[in-house]
Design a protein around this nucleic acid. Sequence first.
DNA 1: TCTGGGGTCCTTTATCGG
DNA 2: TCTGCCGATAAAGGACCC
Length: 354
Amino acid sequence: MGARLIVAHLDLDAFFAAVEELEEPELRTKPLIVGGDPHGRGVVATANYQARTFGIHSAMSCAEALRRCPHAVFVRPRHAVYREYSQHVWETVRGVVPTVERTGLDEGYLDVGEVAEDFLGARKVAEAVQTAVRAATSLTCALGVSTSKVVAKIASDHRKPGGLTVVPAGTEARFLAPFAVRRLPGVGPKAEQRLVAAGVETVGALAGLGDGELKRLLPGSVGRVLRDRARGIDPRPLELSTERISISVENTFERDLTDRAQLHAELRGMARQVAEHLQKTGRTARTVSTKVRYTDFSIRSRSTSLRVGIDDGEQIGDLACGLLDRALADRPGALRLVGVGVSGLASHQQLALV
DNA sequence: TCTGGGGTCCTTTATCGG
DNA sequence: TCTGCCGATAAAGGACCC
């Protein structure tokens, strides 16, 4: 076993909302929105299926969600709780399919080829995963099974919630063709706009584009990658290593901020959090960056690199404040958000070995 | 009072040393 | 010495994803 490339994509149904319903069963019969303050600047993280019938969806502003459904229940995300449920889910999944790439708390890819000979067997394995997850956690999930990540992912999205879609080898392009281009992972708002403006509305149409037009519409390497995916061609292997390559903290203010001292204080607080994170995981960072978002939503960032890695909150805070001053010198204005990030990470262990 | 927070990857541009 | 080219690396921005 293991020669075939059979990959499944698993997606937990309305995960944050589903966990809240398990914790508080009265919520099950109500439209439920997990997200920010509906009277502030928050957005919807997850809405249960009841709430979705009002047109509410992820990334919508909570204020808008409240307008669409004034009797909805709003709860703040509790990530620590979701992490526990998620761990339980993935332990359960690994009991059926040992090799797994987690791409988020609520989704990931499974190397089904390791435990199934063909797509008939793969379907049985996928059903076993759904049954096991449900038995262990009372959570439901949708799965898609095919020969590559991109097809498995679109397949898992095909029958939600709780569905299973198997796309056997040889049928990938036919399966993908009717979907709107936006459904293809990698096609965001910008690419969609360009493609649709040129009359390319479906994945099938994207798959059939000639080299010339493709280059014109999606320059760079993006075009070829996306057209390949539209044809069901996706060479990405399962990524088993889970090393973080950057750490950041950012915060949107309730009201836009201009006062420099206040901004510096915010930044230093975030620098402390970043430093704590570094210290707890035994790592240092060589690059510090500051990000600001202006009232018009445009973003500017400034960064600086050191010869040696640091993990001290004061030091990171000093650098971050200097970078903020530089950004504001280049482009003054009130800010709705500031953030601090570090990258160029190295672990102490690694340093000790050198 | 539209529009979070935490990431990754890619591209372009600037800078610096042969 | 001046200029151009090349490659490496940093910095900045942008698109995208969950």
